Amino acid sequence: MLYYVLKAISFCVCALPRSLSEILGRGLGCFAWLVVPQKRKKLAMDQIRMCLDVSEQEARRIARESSVRFGPMLFEVLRFPVIKKKPEDYVRIEGLEKLHAGLAEGKGAIIAAAHSGNWELMGGAFALAGIPLVGVAMKQKNSAADRFINEYRTMIGMHITYKTGVREMFDMLKKGWVIGLIMDQDTNRHDGIILDFFGRPTNCTPGAASMARFQGVPIFPCFMHRDEKGNHTLVVHDPLYVEKTADKRGDIRRTTQKINDIIEGHVRKYPEEWFWLHDRWKSVRDEFSPQEIELARKD
């Protein structure tokens, strides 16, 4: 039932003028901020002040904008049937030629992205620009919602696999596809490595560097930002190549740290667009002792 409700909502949103869709999306985001638990708001503000060294008032503004933007972002996803017809009206891509040059090697590539801007639209923008993109998704708990979002992702040109589909990712890389990975969320102590992020020990996922090293493919950090009119700029950074020395762990750590540094630079430039409500340092706080953190940073 939920699937058909979402389809009906999407149909109505697609029928709206873009300007009205923006207004309604913003309104939904403002309402969402009102119902965010105070504990979660405080977490976001504490992380912002810890990372950006801003006043409490400025931290609250950034936290609020970071949350409110999910309204317009959701409406853009619902408007995928409209956006796919003229994606250039919504997204401008800078540096696409870098990605094409990397793919010309015939071995595929990896995109390292973050929960900044509309990352769902980013994947679609690349696919509609002719990039054979595999979006790596987390399976939704609700099967109807999962069916809906994956249908819209494929509608806009992406091939979708779940995070558990590692074998499929490698197979697609070998065929020359681009694997899109989001690199900025917390993970568990067994799957992550402790590196620096905003000057603090942070548990980071090494997936992009590990996969790139194994397959010998470039990593392209890519991020979107949105202006006040609702237009997006998608920036493709220069490729990173993972060294392949006898020290496999060191090779992966160095490249993942470079990715972290690029993500940090983007977040500092566009702090309102990052997902501050996510508890980025939870595993470091709950699963590691100070001694383990210190040893891991020296590893």
Rank of each mutant, 00 (worst) to 15 (best):
D286V: 03
M211R: 05
T205N: 11
A63T: 06
E94S: 10
I48N: 01
L128M: 14
P201T: 06
R280T: 10
R213Q: 14
A208G: 08
R61H: 12
K175T: 06
G25I: 04
E76C: 04
M211C: 07
F197Q: 07
R213L: 11
P81V: 05
L128R: 07
L173H: 03
F31L: 15
G165L: 04
E94H: 10
L295V: 13
F198C: 09
A109H: 04
W119C: 11
I219R: 11
R189V: 04
A209E: 02
E88P: 05
M50E: 12
R18G: 09
E97I: 11
C51W: 02
G95E: 13
M50H: 12
S19H: 09
S283F: 00
D89Q: 07
P201D: 10
G27C: 11
S116F: 07
Y241M: 09
D247I: 08
V284F: 02
R26C: 04
V36Q: 02
D89F: 00
M172F: 05
K42Q: 15
D53K: 14
D261I: 04
K84C: 02
R297S: 14
V217Q: 08
T255N: 02
L28N: 03
R79N: 01
G207Q: 05
S55W: 12
I293F: 10
K248G: 02
D247V: 10
I263V: 13
S210M: 13
K175Q: 15
S289H: 09
A137E: 03
M169L: 13
E105V: 05
H232M: 15
L6N: 00
A32T: 08
G230N: 03
T205Q: 07
S55A: 12
G117R: 05
K258I: 05
H100E: 15
D251V: 07
V134E: 12
P37K: 12
S289C: 09
P132E: 02
M155W: 00
A137R: 06
T205E: 06
P17S: 09
L34K: 13
G71H: 04
E56S: 12
S10M: 02
G123S: 10
Q140C: 03
F126D: 00
H100S: 15
A32I: 12
A127Q: 01
G207N: 07
Q291P: 01
S283Y: 00
E151I: 01
E292V: 08
A127P: 01
L240N: 05
R253F: 03
R189W: 10
L74K: 00
R18D: 09
D184V: 11
M138A: 08
T154L: 05
L173F: 13
L195T: 13
D227P: 09
E292I: 04
A208C: 04
R64K: 14
R69D: 03
H237G: 14
M138S: 11
R297M: 15
P239G: 10
K175M: 14
F220Y: 15
P206T: 09
A129T: 04
G123M: 11
L24F: 15
L16A: 08
G124A: 13
I93F: 01
I293T: 06
N203I: 00
V136G: 04
Q47C: 05
L52W: 03
T154V: 03
I131F: 06
R249P: 01
A129D: 01
